[in-house]
Every structure is written in structure tokens, then in C-alpha cells.
Amino acid sequence: MTLLGFLVLIAVAAIRLRDLFAVVMLFGVYSLLTAALFMNLDAVDVAFTEAAVGAGVSTVLMLSGLHLTSRWEQRPKRSPLLPLLVVGVTGAVLVHAMLDAPFVGDPQAPVQTHVTPYYIANAPVEVGMPNMVTAVLASYRGYDTFGETVVIFTAGLAVMLLLGIQQGTHNRPGLNAIGDQLVLRSVVKLLVPAILLYALYVQFHGDFGAGGGFQAGVIFATGFVLYDLAFGEGDARTVVPPGWLHRLAALGVLIYGGVGVYALLAGKPFLDYSALSADPVAGQHLGVLLVELGVGITVFAVILTIFYAFSGRGRRA
């Protein structure tokens, strides 16, 4: 309840403030509180992702967007009457809808009594992994997740088309670094290996706990971004040259799609992992491992592409 109260306050403040920097920071806090709320509601995977993506990636992106545009918003000249009317009507329909909705937490709600029981009863057996979210995400609804990977790839492609990409390797150590700060650099040097290691853990541990390819890709990219910020455009770009990122992003989609096509060639439906092994559960395991790897690679490459595209644009401006 307190969390929801905070969210309301932030939403109201975001409407009123004209300083966009403050608005974006509030958005970050909003996402983080939402993540906490998701923890409360037993959605650990979602909380993890919301914290990494909503509070992390989105906020950073918005800040770089602000850096390249302008920080202060003009006082609007138009009348707020029409928007208020639209929002009022929409809100009224929503409130009306809620009157007949099952209560939060109702064990007799249709969401709990249809389809869900099947997953809870069978996912650990059929797919063979304790984390039902991963089982549903990567197997039962693996095709949605394939689409999700393609959405990320599309976003990367769109940013490349709009802002361009840097070709080849730009090894210019020190350029664009935050500054010559010894403490910062030492801390980053210690942190980056831990971050990358943690990303690998998240990547391959998604079957058992919260996590998976998406979160891992984000964290892995964060490690590179951090190194880039502290040390400038140097070694991080030698390890993964910016000119190769779009190929990596495409590769991730092809790995995921490739698993699907392999099943297809084996005479099974698209993305049927049982084609991968004689033992269906082992096939599921292998399939989930491979598609999560594809997701991780694409997400990592796209997030880094977007970061490089925005920072490259900033240097020119």
C-alpha cells in the first residue's frame, strides 16, 4: 500500500515538473518501486527485469536522449481540457471494468483456475525445471519469446538506421572517459569482472532461480558500458568491436530461429525441443539453454549498439 502511495506521488510530480532531468530520474525511481511491488506480488523474474530494464536501461537511455536534446520543457500553450476529457472517459471505463473484476489474490479467479494449474502441475515434470516462469517463457510460450527477441533486434535495427553505427574498431583509449579519477577506475576494474561473472550465472541459472538470457544480456552489456564510461573508448571496444555488434544481434536471432528450424527439419513443429534429444526432458533442457543463449546474445549486442549510437551522437554534437 505504501509502495502504491509513493507511485501515485511520483506520477503526480512527473506531470507537474518542467525539469525533464528530474522527470526522468523520477521515472527511474518509479520503475524501481514497481520492481519492489512485483517482489511483493511474488513476481521475482519480473521484478529483476523491471529493475534492470525500467530503472536501469530505460532511465539511462532517457538521460542520453535528454543530453542530446534539451533539459527544460516549455510551458505548454494548449488547453488541457481535451486531454483531461479523454483521460477522464478512459479512466471511467477502467474503473467500471474493475467493479466486476476478481479481487487481487482471489484463489477462485479464472486466472488461477484455468491454464495456470496445468503449468504448475506439469511444467516441472514436462520441461524439467523448477522455475515455472522460465519453463513457460522458453518452452510453452517459447514462440512469444522468439517474437520478443525479434522485437529487441528490430529496435536495434531501428536505432542503427536512425543514428548510424560505428564501423570497425575505434580504439581511442581515454576518449570520452568520465575523467581521470583513480578511485572510480579502481572500483570499476574490480566491479566489471564480477558483473560479467554474475551475468553468466544469471544466463545459465535461469532454470532454477530468477533470471535468463534477457537479464543476463542486460547485465553483460552493463559491464561493457561501465568500462567504457570509466576508461573511454578503449579496450572494451577491442574485445567487442562496435562494427560487429549488428552481426552479433542478427546471430542471436538466428540461433533462436535455428533451433526452431532444426525441429522443423526433424519433422516436428517449429521450436519443438523434443526434436533435440531422444529423451524429451533432456531435449527441453537443451532447447531452453540454446534459445536463452540466443536471447542473451541479441540483447547484449542491441543494448551495446544503442549505447554506442547515443554516445557517438553526443560526441559529434
Binding site: 513476481a43 523474474d45 486466472v111 511444467a123 519453463a135 513457460v136 517463457l137 517474437g147 520478443e148
Partner: peptide, 11 residues
């Protein structure tokens, strides 16, 4: 809790 809404929202 139902895993399905979690999956949808991850997407």
C-alpha cells in the same frame, strides 16, 4: 502465484 502473467509482462 500464476507464472503466466509474469511471462507476458517480461515480454
Amino acid at each position: 502465484s500464476s507464472p503466466l502473467p509474469h511471462v507476458l509482462i517480461l515480454t
